[in-house]
Write a protein that binds this DNA or RNA. Structure first.
Length: 470
RNA sequence: GGCGGCGUAGCCAAGUGGUAAGGCAGAGGUCUGCAAAACCUCCAUUCAUCGGUUCAAAUCCGAUCGCCGCCUCCA
C-alpha cells in the first residue's frame, strides 16, 4: 500500500487530535475495557466494541500489526449480587453472560482480539501491583481494605481535567459501602466480607477493586507503557483516571500514550443504560431476526465521538443502505469474473480519488461517516458506468480490490450465505428462467413469489438473473 | 455548582474560513413481459437564535435558548 501512515486520533488526555506514532513502528498495543459479564450486553455497549473493532481493523489496513487486549470482568459487586440472588456461583453467572457476549460479537462481526483475559485469572498480577503500591507508600489500610491515597499522586486528574478540590468529601461518594479517609481515594483491594468470594494475599483475604484489573492485565500483556487505551466516555472518570494513578505510581512510567473514548448510544435523548431501564440488548435484536450487518452499519454510520440515537427507523434505513452496498459488491464481482467484458473507459484516476478519500477519512480519527459518504459516491458513479457497459473486467477487478479493502474495515458488504439452501434456490431460478424463455410469465411469476416467501429476491439484469436474500 | 459535549433538509449525517458530501424516505422519468436492481432529474438561498469580526462564516468571537453527558456503579 502506497498510502502514507499518518493516522490522527483525538486523545482525551490532550483534548486534541494527535498524529499517531506507536512505540513499536510495526506493532500497536491496545487495551480495551471489555464487558462486565453480569447481564446481556446492550447495543450501547456494542457501540463501544464496534468502535474498537473499527480501530483495530483500520490500524491493520494501514499496515500495522495489533496486539490487542480486551478483558472480561468476571468478578464485581453486581456479579456477586446476582449470583447470591439466584443462588449460583459467580462462575455460573459470568460464564453465562460471557458466552452470550461472544455470540453477540459474532452477530456484529467483531474480529477476535488477540487476548481476552478474565480478571479472575490475573489475581496474582493485581496482588503484585497492590504490593508494589504499598511498598511505595501510596496506600493505607482500613477495615481490611487497601485504599489508594490520591493525595500522593500529584498528576491525579490529568486525564479528565477534574478539579479535585471540587469533589466534596462525604457527598455521594460512599455508595460502594467501603469507608475511606478521603472521598477521592479509591479502593484497590476489598477486604473479605462474609460469604463473598475472596482470594488470599499478603495483605489479607479479599478481592480486587474494579480499577485494578485493567492495570494488572494491560501490564501483563502489553508492558508498563502501551499505545492505545479505549473505553466509553463514562470511564474517563474515575476508572481511567484511577488506572493511571495506580499504574504510574507503581511503575514510574507513563501508562498510556493515546486515550480514545467513544460517545454514548442514546434512547431518545438519554444514554442507553441498564439503570435507566431503556436498553435493547444485542441478543434481542439477534433473536428478533434483525440483520446484524445493518446494526453494525448503523453503529458505524456516525463518528464515534458523537452521540448516536437509536431508533428502529435508523435500523431500517441501515438495512436498505447495506443492501445497496452488497448489491453493488456482487455486481462488481460478477463483472470482474466475466473475462468477455472489456473496459470502454478509464476509471483509474477516479478510483484512486475514492481510495484516497477512504484512507484519509479513516486516518482522520476514524471518520467512518465521511468514509461511507465517499464510498456511496463511488457506488453511484460505477453503477452508472456499468449501466452503460463502460466498465470491463479489468477495472471491475480494480474496484473489487478496493471494495475488499474498504470492507476489511466495514465488514458489511458480504452477507453470510446459507450454502445448504443454495441448490434448491438454483433449481427454482432455473425453472423460472425456462418459463420466461417460453414466455410463460404466469409460471415465472409464481416461482418468483415462491422464492420471495423463502426470503429470496430475484433480479433480471442485462448480465443475467441474480438472486439475493432479503 | 465544576468540567465537557451537542443543535445542519421529513429522518440520519459529513463538512471547523471560500460559498451546503452522503444515506434513508418522497416526487417524476428511463430500462423491464411485469417486477426487482440500477441510472437520470427534483428535494436546505441555508446550517438553534441574535449580534460581531472578515472581501468571504455552518465554520472564528460574544451573548441567548434548547438538549445531553461526567463529577456515584456505568460502555
Amino acid at each position: 500500500m502506497t498510502f502514507q501512515k499518518s493516522i490522527r486520533f483525538y486523545d482525551t488526555k490532550t483534548g486534541s487530535q494527535r498524529r499517531f506514532e506507536p512505540i513499536n513502528p510495526e506493532v500497536v498495543s491496545i487495551y480495551s475495557c471489555g464487558p462486565t459479564v453480569y447481564n446481556f450486553a446492550h447495543i450501547g455497549n456494542f457501540r463501544n466494541f464496534v468502535f474498537v473493532d473499527v480501530l483495530r481493523r483500520t490500524l491493520k489496513l494501514f499496515g500495522y500489526d495489533v496486539r490487542h487486549v480486551r478483558n472480561v470482568t468476571d468478578v464485581d459487586d453486581k456479579i456477586i449480587r446476582i449470583a447470591q440472588e439466584n443462588n449460583e456461583s459467580i462462575k455460573d453467572v459470568s460464564s453465562r453472560y460471557e458466552e452470550a457476549f461472544f455470540e453477540d460479537c459474532k452477530y456484529l462481526r467483531l474480529e477476535d482480539v488477540e487476548y481476552n483475559p478474565r480478571a479472575t485469572d490475573h489475581i496474582d498480577g493485581m496482588i503484585d501491583l497492590v504490593k508494589r503500591l504499598i511498598e511505595k507508600g501510596y496506600t493505607y489500610e482500613k477495615d481490611g481494605s487497601i485504599y489508594f491515597k490520591v493525595d500522593k499522586f500529584t498528576d491525579y486528574g490529568k486525564l479528565s481535567g477534574i478539579d479535585l478540590s471540587a469533589v466534596r468529601t462525604g457527598a455521594r461518594v460512599d455508595s460502594d459501602e467501603y469507608s475511606k479517609e478521603d472521598a477521592r481515594d479509591f479502593v484497590l483491594w476489598k477486604g473479605r466480607r462474609n460469604d463473598e468470594p475472596y482470594w488470599d494475599s499478603d495483605f489479607g483475604q479479599g478481592r480486587p477493586g474494579w480499577h485494578l484489573e485493567c492495570s494488572a492485565m494491560s501490564r501483563h500483556y502489553l508492558g508498563d507503557t502501551f499505545d492505545i487505551h479505549t473505553g466509553a466516555e463514562d470511564l474517563v472518570f474515575p476508572h481511567h483516571e484511577n488506572e493511571i494513578a495506580q499504574s504510574e505510581a507503581a511503575n514510574g512510567r507513563e501508562y498510556v500514550r493515546y486515550w480514545l473514548h467513544c460517545a454514548f448510544l442514546n434512547m431518545k435523548d438519554q444514554k442507553m443504560s441498564k439503570s435507566l431501564g431503556n436498553i435493547i440488548t444485542a441478543k434481542k435484536l439477534r433473536d428478533d431476526g434483525v440483520n446484524g450487518l445493518a446494526v453494525r452499519y448503523f453503529l458505524l454510520s456516525v463518528h464515534y465521538r458523537k452521540p448516536l440515537a437509536f431508533s428502529y427507523e435508523s435500523i431500517d434505513s441501515a438495512v436498505t443502505a447495506v443492501t445497496r452496498l452488497q448489491t453493488f459488491f456482487t455486481r462488481i464481482k460478477d463483472l470482474a469474473d466475466n473475462r468477455e467484458a472489456d473496459d470502454r473507459t478509464d476509471f483509474e484516476d477516479k478510483l484512486n480519488k475514492y481510495k484516497n478519500e477512504w484512507f484519509e477519512a479513516l486516518a482522520d480519527d476514524l471518520n467512518t461517516a465521511k468514509a461511507l459518504g465517499s464510498l456511496f459516491e463511488l457506488v453511484r458513479e460505477a453503477n452508472s458506468l456499468m449501466d452503460r457497459q463502460m466498465i470491463g473486467w479489468r477495472q471491475a477487478t480494480a474496484i473489487l480490490d478496493f471494495l475488499s479493502m474498504a470492507d476489511s474495515v466495514l465488514d458489511v458488504m458480504q452477507s453470510d450465505s446459507d450454502s445448504g439452501l443454495n441448490q434448491e434456490i438454483e433449481d427454482l431460478v432455473n425453472c423460472r428462467n425456462e418459463a420466461r424463455k417460453a414466455r410463460n410469465f404466469e409460471e415465472a411469476d409464481r416461482i418468483r413469489d415462491q422464492l420471495k416467501k423463502m426470503g429470496i429476491i430475484i433480479e433480471d439484469t442485462r448480465e443475467g438473473v441474480r438472486w439475493r436474500k432479503i
